[in-house]
Computed example of a mutant assay.
Amino acid sequence: MKKITKLGVLVMVVAMVLSLAACSGGTTTSGDAKKYVVATDTTFKPFEYENEKGERVGIDIDLLAAIAEDQGFAYELKAVGFDAALGEVSTGQSDAMIAGMSITDERKKTFDFSDPYFDSGVVMAVSSSNDTIKAYADLKGLNVAVKTGTEGSTFAESIKDQYGFTTSSFPDSANMYEDVKAGNSAALFEDYPVVGDAIASGVPLKMVTEMEKGSSYGFAVKAGENAELLEMFNTGLANVKANGKYQEILDTYIKK
């Protein structure tokens, strides 16, 4: 009788396990909903930066939050720097990135981009005390500072042979500004809202050229992957533009 009871209990346990497995197969509960990992830059104000409270803020950060709320998806933000973010997505450590990333044909070989969410442009800036450099031709024989991976860097590289200057690359905006302030570099090339915000925040620089038209910024995923996330971003972007939230975000960070 004891042996029969043990066998019966064993059969019941196996039956319950199989039943639970059958019920859970192919379904996902709301608590197990996928959370996307999104990489971003650390210092690309006003697109992404840390405020005085230690909070991660900026156009990209607020825009991602608004789109995620509109589309109902969860995400984890990883502020790792621009170059590291590129690596995170290309190796699958992060699902996507939003970091003031210009949409270029070269990058399209590695990434799939969303619809453009911001149209940028490049300006040249010098120390506020510099009255000798007013045009590209004044850079002959001098060095200029750029930030790695930016539209400003791409533009500087495209004209440096024509105007006879050299470039030094920096991983973040703060070090680039310091290099110009210290006189190690005669000027810098940077996206106009970024350097404009720096000047408004008290960095002793001034813009000395008209804005050169640049590329558009896009949200990016690894080529061929996370198509559903890209689709949600595009749909959410269209919605927040239509309801006014997009312009509200721009007005918060870009002072006219």
Rank of each mutant, 00 (worst) to 15 (best):
L188M: 15
T166F: 00
S185N: 15
G202H: 08
G183V: 13
T154I: 10
A200D: 14
L188C: 13
S168I: 09
Y177F: 14
K206G: 06
F155H: 07
A200K: 13
A198E: 02
G202I: 09
F189A: 11
K206M: 07
S173V: 11
M176W: 05
E178P: 00
M176C: 12
A198I: 03
S173P: 01
G183W: 10
Q162G: 04
S169F: 03
N184R: 14
G202K: 10
T150S: 06
E178R: 14
T166N: 15
S185F: 05
F155C: 02
A200N: 13
A174F: 04
V195S: 09
A174I: 06
F189D: 05
L188Y: 04
T166W: 00
G164I: 06
P204C: 10
M207Q: 11
P204S: 10
A156M: 07
F170N: 04
Q162T: 12
E151A: 08
E157H: 06
V208K: 03
A200V: 06
V203P: 01
T154Q: 08
Q162V: 04
A187P: 09
I199R: 12
K160D: 10
E190S: 05
I199Q: 09
E151V: 02
P171E: 08
A182D: 15
P193K: 11
V194M: 12
S168T: 14
K206P: 09
G164W: 01
P204T: 12
V208N: 07
A200C: 04
P171L: 08
G152V: 02
V195W: 03
A200R: 10
F189V: 11
S169A: 15
M207E: 12
A200F: 08
T167W: 02
S169I: 01
T167M: 10
G164Q: 01
F165E: 04
A200S: 13
K181A: 09
G152W: 03
G196Q: 09
E157V: 07
Y192E: 13
A156T: 04
V203G: 05
P193N: 14
D191M: 07
P171S: 11
I159K: 02
V180K: 07
K160Y: 02
D179K: 15
D161V: 03
T154S: 10
S168A: 13
Y163L: 07
K206T: 08
A182M: 14
N184F: 11
S158K: 05
E151P: 00
F170G: 01
K181F: 08
S169M: 09
A187C: 12
A186Y: 10
G202N: 08
A156F: 05
S201T: 11
N184T: 13
Q162P: 00
F170W: 11
L205Y: 00
K181C: 03
G152I: 02
V194Y: 01
P171C: 00
P193D: 11
F155R: 06
S173N: 14
S168Y: 08
V180R: 03
G164L: 02
S168G: 07
V203S: 02
S185M: 13
A174E: 12
V195K: 05
V180A: 10
